[in-house]
């Protein structure tokens, strides 16, 4: 999942969270997550004061943002004292898969 500015949104991207009028979570929801964006929908969001949307995967690279490799290295470091604990190992594997998925990676990387 990635939060991007609406001007970077393109048709074909999938919403990862509901979109609210004026970007406010207490505002009126105007489009549900899971919806595939179209040019018409993006124009409509613009007219309803939406500035940011959350989309599936991680299609836009932002300057200064950690790469998947960085994130995985940090995860390994955080778990470096407890990987021999079976329960921590379960948690580690789930987080690793989560990071790979949220950064738009594929399942081959998860299997590695």
């Amino acid at each position: 999942m990635q939060k991007i500015q609406l001007i970077l949104a393109k048709a074909g991207m999938t919403l990862a969270r509901d979109v609210f009028r004026g970007d406010s979570p207490v505002g009126m929801p105007i489009c549900g997550k899971g919806t595939e964006l179209t040019e018409a929908l993006i124009a409509r969001f613009e007219s309803m004061d939406v500035h940011n949307v959350y989309i599936e995967g991680h299609p836009i690279h932002v300057e200064g943002e950690s790469s998947l490799d960085d994130l995985l290295l940090k995860l390994d470091y955080r778990f470096s004292k407890t990987l021999q604990e079976p329960l921590n190992l379960i948690m580690y594997d789930i987080y690793k898969a989560y990071l790979i998925k949220s950064m738009g990676g594929n399942s081959d990387q998860i299997a590695e």
Binding site: R78, F79, T82, L87, N88
Partner: peptide, 17 residues
């Protein structure tokens, strides 16, 4: 939250569950 790396409690390592 330690495992997620969110925020900073001063702790570098995930405690054992």
């Amino acid at each position: 939250i330690c495992a997620s790396g969110f925020g900073n409690s001063g702790e570098s390592f995930v405690p054992p569950i």
